[in-house]
Design a protein around this nucleic acid. Structure first.
Lengths: 124, 124
DNA sequence: AATTTAAGATTACACGCGTAATCAAATAAT
DNA sequence: ATTATTTGATTACGCGTGTAATCTTAAATT
């Protein structure tokens, strides 16, 4: 599995918003949420390339970056390893923890019900 | 929030198994799963103390370590920040990702249903 | 054509982490 | 009482990370 740091993931996340994307585009996308220096973001883009999370094509003197992995694929892997580490691979205790601490809204519950419903339909 | 590294968490996890616990006890508990050198584990115990995750009382020349936080409290915080980072704070997409990739068993589903059930009962 | 600009490449640097080895001191053994 | 042992404290060290600054070179401007 490709291992990304927190900051690297956030940059990749900005690329997932729409790609191919140039460095400048990524910088603009991040500028609202982050106080990162332009140079910092470029460093992170390079590291993402080196790690195989991004590829690029030259276009003039700019690069057009494209993710090498789908967001869902990456977050699924991360979720698996998270749940393995903290909850022995079982997902219910995580949800249960949220429930116990009043982190769940009716909306969350409805969404969860739908997930369960879909799962059961798809099962039969 | 106390920030623990992966290795630090695993050591703390061994303390949570039963406390107060001496370094030797922790070392024994970890010996099955981990190939860690005794010195490594002691380093991690010290770092956990420095970070405020463990406290200790001297007993002879040994220390008796006790966690300063409950496992559930810690994992809840971690879960929150995980779900924030990867799923914008919503829990259903995580579960949905598992469902889509066939990571869920009937048992998981049953557990999830129970969590939902309990939540709804407790709501009325 | 010469100069300025701007993009990516390279270099920097302190701090945390994994992974111990060494040091100091208190206790256990003789 | 000495010596050996064992515990925690201190030190070590390379690698990843956050956070850029500087360098190089190609493209844009004049």
């Amino acid at each position: 599995m490709i291992e990304l740091s927190k900051a690297e993931f956030e940059v990749l996340d900005a690329v997932w918003l729409g790609y191919p994307a140039t460095a400048s585009e990524v910088i603009v996308r991040l500028s609202d949420d982050k106080e990162w220096h332009e140079k910092t973001i470029k460093t992170l883009l390079s590291r993402l390339v080196k790690k195989g999370a991004l590829s690029f094509e030259k276009q003039g003197r700019q690069y057009n970056y494209t993710p090498c992995i789908a967001r869902e694929e990456y977050t699924l892997k991360e979720s698996q390893s998270f749940i393995e580490r903290f909850f022995n691979g079982r997902i219910a205790p995580l949800v249960s923890g949220f429930a116990k601490s009043e982190q769940l809204s009716q909306h969350d519950i409805d969404e969860l019900k739908k997930v369960i419903d879909d799962w059961e339909k798809q099962q039969k």
